[in-house]
Design a protein around this nucleic acid. Structure first.
Lengths: 187, 187
DNA sequence: CCTGGTCTTGGGCAACTGCCCAAAAGGACG
DNA sequence: CGTCCTTTTGGGCAGTTGCCCAAGACCAGG
C-alpha cells in the first residue's frame, strides 16, 4: 500500500502519454511508446493502468482540468475577462502540445462516453466561470456570450493551427462588440 | 489508361475512408478496414493510392472542399450571412461523420505539411467568401469579423459535441451583435 | 480467337500491437 | 537475518499492421 515509489512512475507515464498524444495522435500511442518515453519497462503500463485507453483518458482529463484551473486563476486576477481570453489565445499557437492534446481528447470523447462526460464538465465549468465574470460587468446575455466566447477561443486556435492567423490583437476589437458595456471600467 | 472501371473502386475507397476516419479516428484506419468497407480486396488500396496516408488525405481534403462549396452556394442564396452560418450549425451535431472527419483532418494536418497547406487554403477560402458578404452589408471590420465567425462555427460544433449545447437559436442574438448593421435589411 | 493493357485478388513478410505472467528487485518491518 | 508486500522487468502470445507481388480476371482493339 506504499505510494511514494510507484507514484513517481505513474506520474511519468501520465506525462509521457500527454506528450505522445499531441505528437502522434490519440490512437497512435502504444504501450511501448509511453513506457519508452517514461524510461520504464513496458510491462509496467498495465500494472499502473487498466488499459492504454484508461491511461490516455486520465492524462487528457488531467490536462483539461489544469487548463480550467489556470483560466480560473487568470480571471480572478483581472477585471476584464475578454483580455484574459485574448492573452491565453496568444500563449498557444494551435500546434503546441497542449492545444493538440485537448483537441485529440475532444475527438476521443466522441468514442468514449465517460471521457465525454468528464470533458463536457470541464467545458461547462469554463463557461460558467466566464458567465459569472461577464454578468458582473453587466453583459445582458451573459450565458450565451460565455458559450460563444469559450467556443471562439477553441475555434480560433483550431484555425490558427492551419493558417497561422489571427493573433489576439487582430480580433480584439471584433470580440469587444460582444461586451456592450465597452472597454474596461475603472470603477 | 481506361478510367471507368478503376474509377469506381477508387471512389468507393475514398468514401469508405471518410466514414472510417470519423468512426475510429485518423490513425486507427487501416488498409484492410477501408478495403472491407468498400467491398474490395485489400491489395487494391495500394494500387490506387501511394499509401494509406495519401488515401486519408485525399478523402479529407475532398470533404473539406465540398463543405466550402456548400457554404458558397448557401451564401449566394441568402442576403443574411449570419443566418446561413446558424443554419449550417443546426445541420451538424458535432458528432456526425462530417464534423468528426473535418476535426480529424485538422489534427492530421498538424503532422503533414501538405495537408496543412491544403486545409489552410480551404479555411482561408471560407473566410474570404464570408468577408465579401459581410462587407456588402456594411460591416466595418469585415475581415476580422469573418475570421471570428468562421472560427466560432467550428468551436461551437466542437463544444456541442461534448455538452449537447447550444443550438443555433440560443446564440443568434449574441452573434448578431457582430453585425452592427442590425437585422436583415429588406432594402 | 488472341494480345495487351487496366484492374483485382489473396497470400506472404517483417514489424508491431495490447495484454499477460513468471520472476526478481526494492524496501519497511520483525 | 528473514518475511511480506509493492514495484519492476523482460519475454511471450495471438492477432494486426503497411506494403509487396505473383497470379489471374476483365475487357477493349485487332
Amino acid at each position: 500500500m506504499s505510494t511514494v515509489r510507484g507514484r513517481e512512475a505513474r506520474d511519468r507515464l501520465l506525462r509521457a502519454a500527454a506528450e505522445l498524444i499531441a505528437e502522434y495522435g490519440w490512437t497512435a500511442v502504444t504501450t511501448r511508446m509511453v513506457a519508452d518515453r517514461a524510461g520504464i519497462g513496458a510491462g509496467l503500463v498495465h500494472y499502473h493502468f487498466e488499459s492504454v485507453a484508461a491511461l490516455l483518458a486520465e492524462a487528457a482529463i488531467t490536462a483539461a482540468r489544469g487548463m480550467m484551473t489556470e483560466l480560473e486563476s487568470l480571471l480572478a486576477q483581472s477585471d476584464d475577462p475578454l483580455s484574459v481570453l485574448l492573452g491565453m489565445l496568444d500563449d498557444y499557437s494551435g500546434r503546441d502540445p497542449m492545444s493538440l492534446l485537448l483537441v485529440e481528447a475532444y475527438l476521443a470523447a466522441s468514442r468514449d462516453v465517460q471521457l465525454r462526460q468528464e470533458l463536457g464538465g470541464v467545458v461547462d465549468g469554463c463557461r460558467r466561470m466566464l458567465e459569472v465574470r461577464l454578468a458582473e460587468r453587466g453583459v445582458p446575455d451573459a450565458s450565451g456570450t460565455a458559450i460563444v466566447l469559450a467556443a471562439a477561443v477553441d475555434g480560433l486556435l483550431l484555425h490558427r493551427a492551419l493558417t497561422g492567423r489571427p493573433s489576439g490583437a487582430d480580433i480584439a476589437s471584433v470580440l469587444r462588440q460582444l461586451l456592450p458595456t465597452g472597454g474596461r471600467e475603472t470603477s
